[in-house]
Computed example of a mutant assay.
Amino acid sequence: MRALRIIDTEDGPRGRITEMEQADLTAGEVVIESRYSSLNYKDALAITGAGKIARKRPLNAGIDVAGVVQASDDTRFAPGDEVLVTGWQLSETRDGGLADYVRVPAHCVTALPAGLTAWEAMALGTAGFTAGLAISRLRDNFQSPEAGPILVTGASGGVGMFAIQMLAQAGFSPVAVTRRVEAQGPALRELGATDVIAPDTLDLGGKPLGSETYGGAIDALGGPVLADLLGHIVQFGNVAAIGLAAGPKLETTVLPFILRGVSLLGINSVECPAPRREAVWGDLAGELKPAGLDRIAHETIGLNDVQAVCEAIMAGEHSGRTVVDVTR
């Protein structure tokens, strides 16, 4: 079988297409014949060696996969079933989806919901699932469109673009936050953003609180931007933290939490429990399914093209989503 495998080289971990035996895949009860995967920032880190994502090596890359069950020792799945896997330590401690076959524990497998094709599931992938999970958590904590606009930071990334369109479809007013206002503004407005602003707009100028302007936020940046936007959230609004592109440290005060009742919700899409995961994927196949999915997932490539796209991601020269047809 063919696989894009993370191996140790003189220059550090790197992704290389290689041949391996299916018997050498990491353990699990379900063997999936891969049809599609997708490329996320995390994949680019692993494949280019910019980040040590694969905690043991050699290990197959790819944190997402959709395909057909080839064999299963678990009665919940049978050969021929269409399934998907996102997260669950694929490409970290388990062989990932950029390979002809994947073997995983049964609890990692989600049945492909009616309303989604395998390609659509991977066009969404971890990015779409993370956006859907964040919206699910916001709603659980009584977030409503009436509370005000929802900030979406990292708006030009995969998660941000999905979050904007999903929020708009759900009746919210998303405000895109990006440093590339002029370049990305028209596309983000087309997805449903009611406004496009730069992160500097949120700067509190050293004050602990600013004006109550936004009903909530989905934040992919962390660091100073998250600290600033917390001070602009209305009473009992919610902020879903999904990433740390601007840094892992959060230097803020407790004032947004104890004076305005703001909630900071952590989003862990990697180990999301199966019942919640299935519910979110159901939403993604239904009301939250992006109407313009093919505009966000703008290209489908083969395994041989993955390295070049990952390098473009790391160079900041890539936007939207890339689906990988593993069968090519």
Results as ranks from 00 to 15, higher is better:
residue 211 S to N: 13
residue 198 A to S: 02
residue 229 L to Q: 08
residue 271 E to C: 11
residue 249 K to A: 15
residue 240 A to C: 13
residue 288 L to W: 13
residue 277 R to H: 05
residue 208 P to S: 05
residue 244 L to I: 15
residue 201 T to A: 12
residue 213 T to F: 07
residue 310 C to R: 09
residue 234 V to F: 07
residue 210 G to T: 01
residue 237 G to A: 08
residue 218 I to K: 07
residue 208 P to H: 02
residue 261 G to K: 09
residue 220 A to P: 03
residue 266 G to I: 04
residue 274 A to S: 12
residue 289 K to I: 02
residue 197 I to D: 00
residue 212 E to Y: 06
residue 198 A to K: 00
residue 250 L to C: 11
residue 238 N to I: 01
residue 238 N to A: 10
residue 256 P to C: 05
residue 230 L to E: 02
residue 247 G to T: 06
residue 309 V to L: 10
residue 213 T to Y: 04
residue 253 T to N: 06
residue 215 G to E: 01
residue 296 I to R: 08
residue 282 G to W: 02
residue 305 D to N: 14
residue 305 D to S: 15
residue 221 L to R: 11
residue 194 T to L: 05
residue 296 I to C: 12
residue 272 C to N: 09
residue 214 Y to F: 13
residue 206 G to T: 02
residue 234 V to H: 04
residue 273 P to E: 07
residue 312 A to Q: 15
residue 297 A to V: 03
residue 221 L to M: 12
residue 252 T to G: 13
residue 234 V to M: 05
residue 220 A to T: 02
residue 226 L to H: 03
residue 205 G to E: 06
residue 262 V to C: 09
residue 264 L to R: 08
residue 203 D to Q: 10
residue 259 L to I: 02
residue 194 T to V: 13
residue 302 G to M: 12
residue 212 E to G: 09
residue 228 D to W: 07
residue 199 P to V: 01
residue 270 V to E: 09
residue 196 V to P: 00
residue 249 K to I: 15
residue 236 F to V: 08
residue 208 P to C: 04
residue 217 A to T: 00
residue 282 G to Y: 04
residue 197 I to M: 00
residue 188 L to K: 02
residue 291 A to C: 10
residue 275 P to C: 13
residue 314 M to Q: 15
residue 199 P to M: 05
residue 306 V to P: 09
residue 199 P to D: 01
residue 203 D to K: 08
residue 314 M to W: 11
residue 192 G to L: 01
residue 245 A to G: 02
residue 189 R to Y: 00
residue 210 G to Q: 01
residue 305 D to V: 07
residue 257 F to C: 06
residue 208 P to M: 00
residue 247 G to A: 12
residue 300 T to P: 12
residue 272 C to D: 08
residue 214 Y to D: 00
residue 286 G to R: 04
residue 302 G to I: 09
residue 313 I to F: 14
residue 219 D to K: 12
residue 287 E to H: 15
residue 252 T to F: 11
residue 296 I to Y: 10
residue 202 L to S: 00
residue 273 P to S: 10
residue 217 A to V: 00
